[in-house]
Amino acid sequence: MKYPVAVSVNGRAYRREVEARTLLVDFLRDHLGLFGTHVGCETSQCGACLVTLDGLTLKACTRLAVQADGAQVTTLEGLLVDGNLHPVQSALLKECALTCGFCASGVVLAAKECLERKPVAGEDEVRRSLEGVFCRCTGYQPIVDAVRSLAAAPVRDLRDGATAEL
């Protein structure tokens, strides 16, 4: 049996029919062709499948597509405006904070949520906010440094280039 799902992803409305067992992450990748959201551990641990759902970061492997009916989803692709990187992405690039890039989908969205909640987050707060995303390359320090480099930035700058849900 299939169920209707109407969802807004990165500001664009989609209507699809899915099986109840379809996970949100598979829906985004296989049904909508949005491959910025990665499939990592599939056990709610690694955070490579992070998206925001109605403004809150979510591991998209831990939600059914049918549960997202009526929701607003933002994926990594949604952070680009006119091809420009989000300030969090720029900061990660500047600090060489991503190596293989597999975890980037999670790191970027987790860091963005951290800074939206605590614009002047200290190191402990940044590390706590990143607990849900695993990076196997960097040892985290460059990621923390990159996020901290934005911690003093005015909130307005973070919102520039960000999606409508902010």
Binding site: G47, T57, E131
Partner: peptide
């Protein structure tokens, strides 16, 4: 509890 994403949902 958990991590930020667990707490969100």
């Amino acid at each position: 509890v958990g991590d930020a994403q667990v707490r969100n949902f």
